[in-house]
C-alpha cells in the first residue's frame, strides 16, 4: 500500500442512492478513497458498477436520491460533468465515443486548455502543447500518428482504450475511474494499457478500476478490492479476494450476504 492513509479522503461517497427512470440502481453505497490508493470494484453484470462510475463523473441521466459525494472537500453533487472534470475527476469509458472530423491532438488541446483556463493558468499554443504531448506519448509508448487521426475514429478496441489512458495522462486527474478498461483487450493491449495506468499512478492521485475479471489485477495491483452486488458494496478485501473470485466466482459471496 503506497499511501499512509493519513489526512482526508480524496473522495468520500456517503450512503449514495441513485435512480434512473424510477429504477433504483445504487443503494446506500459508502466508500472512501485516499490519495495514492488503487481500488478495484468487481461484480457480476448488472450489479451497478458502471452506474457508479457514471454517477461519480456526473452523468445527467442518474438522479441521486440519497447520500452525497465529497471530492477534495467539496460537495460535487451539484456540479456538471465538465465542472467535475476541472476539479480533477476523470472517467475512462468502456465504449469511448468516436468524433469524426476532430483530430485527437486538437481535442486533447481543447480539453487541456479548458482545464488550464478554469484553473487560471496559461493555455498552451499548438507548438507548446505538442511538446507536452510528446512526453506523454513517449511515456505511454503511443506513436504520434495517433494524434492526427480523428478521435477514436476507426480505432480498434485496444487503441480506443490506449487513447483513454492518453487523455488521462494529458489531463492529470486527481481521481481516475476506469470503467471496464480491460474489456475487449487482448493480452498485449492489456499489458500496454496497464503499464500506462501504473506509470500515471502516484501518491497524489487515486484510481478506481471497474472490472469484470481478475486478469487486469495481475497487471495493476489494487490496494483494495470491492465486490458490488445489487447496487452496493457487499465485500471488501485485498488482492486475494480477487483471486478467490477468479477461482470460485461470485456466488459464494452473494450467498454469504
Amino acid at each position: 500500500m503506497r499511501n499512509t492513509n493519513g489526512g482526508n479522503p480524496l473522495v468520500h461517497i456517503d450512503g449514495l442512492a441513485t435512480e434512473i427512470e424510477g429504477r433504483e440502481i445504487l443503494k446506500d453505497l459508502t466508500l472512501s478513497v485516499f490519495p495514492g490508493e488503487i481500488h478495484a470494484i468487481m461484480g457480476p453484470n448488472g450489479s451497478g458498477k458502471s452506474t457508479f462510475a457514471k454517477v461519480l463523473a456526473g452523468h445527467p441521466s442518474y438522479e441521486v436520491t440519497k447520500g452525497g459525494i465529497t471530492f477534495s472537500g467539496i460537495d460535487v453533487l451539484d456540479l456538471s460533468p465538465e465542472e467535475r472534470a476541472r476539479e480533477g475527476i476523470f472517467m475512462g469509458f468502456q465504449y469511448p465515443v468516436e468524433i469524426p472530423g476532430v483530430t485527437n491532438s486538437s481535442f486533447l488541446r481543447l480539453a487541456f486548455n479548458t482545464a488550464q483556463s478554469a484553473r487560471g493558468e496559461d493555455e498552451l499554443d499548438p507548438i507548446e502543447f505538442d511538446d507536452y504531448l510528446q512526453d506523454k506519448l513517449k511515456m505511454l509508448e503511443i506513436s504520434s500518428d495517433f494524434l492526427d487521426r480523428s478521435v477514436n475514429g476507426g480505432f480498434s478496441g485496444g487503441e480506443k482504450k490506449r487513447n483513454e489512458i492518453l487523455q488521462m495522462a494529458v489531463l492529470e486527474p486527481k481521481l481516475a475511474i476506469l470503467d471496464e478498461t480491460d474489456s475487449g483487450l487482448d493480452i498485449d493491449a492489456l499489458r500496454v494499457v496497464s503499464q500506462g495506468v501504473n506509470k500515471l499512478a502516484n501518491n497524489d492521485n487515486a484510481i478506481i478500476l471497474i472490472t469484470h475479471y481478475q486478469r487486469l489485477l495481475n497487471y495493476i495491483k489494487p490496494d483494495f478490492v470491492h465486490v458490488m452486488h445489487e447496487g452496493n458494496i457487499v465485500k471488501t478485501g485485498n488482492e486475494k479476494l480477487a483471486q478467490e473470485l477468479e477461482e470460485k466466482g461470485y456466488d459464494w459471496i452473494l450467498d454469504e450476504t
Binding site: 456526473g58 465538465e82 469509458f93 482545464a115 489531463l171
Partner: peptide, 10 residues
C-alpha cells in the same frame, strides 16, 4: 457526456 467528462462545456 463523454466530451463533458473531458472538461468541455456542454
Amino acid at each position: 457526456f463523454y466530451l463533458q467528462t473531458r472538461g468541455i462545456p456542454k
